[in-house]
Amino acid sequence: MISIKGLYKKFGELEVLKGIDLEVNKGEVVVVIGPSGSGKTTLLRCLNILEVPTAGSITLNGHTADFSKQVAKNEINYFRSETGMVFQNYNLFPHKTALENVMEGPVIVKKEPKDVARKKAVSLLNKVGLGDKFDFYPFQLSGGQQQRVGIARALALEPKVMLFDEPTSALDPELVGEVLQVMKDLANEGMTMVVVTHEMRFAQDAADEVIFIDEGKVIERNKPSELFTNPKEERTRQFLNLIL
């Protein structure tokens, strides 16, 4: 479903991604781990071209974006429409209610009739356990609730792939579980997911594959059971020792 080839990203002089190759199959849950500054968030943001890579290519559902050339606008639009993104800081629209946040994409971008979009938004919010918070503004919701609205907002556009950028890092510890549960449910439904996270429990429970990135390169990739118990690379071992 996703095929990344030779991906490079430079911010000025700083090279953050140094030749990433990666395949993600349909229905797979891939968890990306790595020390801070390793490039994992940048990699995720390249997948929907929120950051434009410096070189390499990404193929999504047979559409290839080749970053050795200028990427066409409609190519970017395709990547955005096929992917949903969940941010570390939720980035909900503060002037819109939970329901309006979820309806915004379908109504404004997909031009769906309001009543259709509303029905879908209601069922999505029910699904993430916020059936009683439709008319709440983001500031009236806890972090965990806001993040679940964020997930519903992304799902409303019916993406083929969901991208999660440290979705629980900004949450109080007791709120992490409710967000991870929603993500696990989604994984069980067969959603293709790429998740950058520090939640090793989630990786162990839900990931099909864990990828360890350091200094802009994929160091090691394996099933979670293998990678966590029997890492092959010294650097992976060091990292796991620090966090487990």
Binding site: N48, R80, T83, F93, K110
Partner: peptide, 12 residues
Amino acid sequence: KGQWEAAHTIGM
């Protein structure tokens, strides 16, 4: 900036 990004990711 996250507001721009969130809007872009839902296709706006």
